[in-house]
Design a protein around this nucleic acid. Structure first.
Lengths: 116, 116
DNA sequence: CTAATTGAAAACCTTTTGGTTAAATATTGG
DNA sequence: CCAATATTTAACCAAAAGGTTTTCAATTAG
């Protein structure tokens, strides 16, 4: 589906960068669904939703089981693991930075702004 | 910078969906850098790299400190937190699915394919 | 067999993305 | 003042994204 790790990350992050696709994934977290079922909540044509599903499929996040004329889609969350791992490297940074914010708010509450 | 949570996620995931931008963030994890320094490793014009930095900036992942003619960029990892949280909801699924794969491989090793 | 349903494919359109080169702006150093 | 440096802006381009409508293909139901 995707060549190297970097392309896999590209595809996963790109797939997640759209609210419709994230909503489809949320829906699939509650169980499989056909293309029509998945498309129903959106104010867009079935064709458009179907394209979103294909983007998810190409990123490896959705598997499709064709039975007769209905295509049932299943969540495959595994490719998200790589994205999570990538983000985890930065967790230390945002923790530090959130701590910094906390300290700043604390300082403001005590009337100490840290300024000179 | 970004309106609601969904748009924030859009911007963050979109920003991360490009290998050049991920490399810039990795570089910034080792410490701040000027636009030129950040652009140097890439086989693209300074202007192109500068645009990537702007994408990161608009996603809130980079802050810029202008001193004279040099712009020093700093990592701000905090917006990644939302992306991590979003992914975390799916962690249970990929764990389950990786377990499934493990079980399958285990079964193959013992000569039990699970088929009937 | 025929009609309805499910979904993809094709053709098209507009906006965004990722890149280019050339020009403008601001700052620094001699 | 003048030249070099750091960076952005402007104008442009090709390709990708995200949408549309129309058409086609396969399957199911009556």
């Amino acid at each position: 589906m995707v060549n190297n790790d970097s392309e896999q990350l590209d595809a996963v992050f790109r797939a997640l960068a759209d609210p419709t696709r994230r909503a489809i994934l949320r829906s699939l977290a509650d169980g499989p669904g056909t293309v029509s079922e998945l498309a129903a909540p959106f104010e867009m044509s079935l064709v458009a939703a179907s394209k979103h599903i294909r983007v998810l499929e190409r990123a490896g996040l959705v598997r499709r089981e064709v039975r007769g004329r209905t295509h049932t889609c299943h969540l495959d969350a595994r490719p998200m693991h790589g994205g999570m791992e990538w983000l985890r490297h930065y967790e230390q940074f945002w923790n530090r930075q959130l701590d910094g914010l906390e300290a700043l708010l604390e300082a403001e509450n005590t009337g100490n702004t840290g300024e000179q």
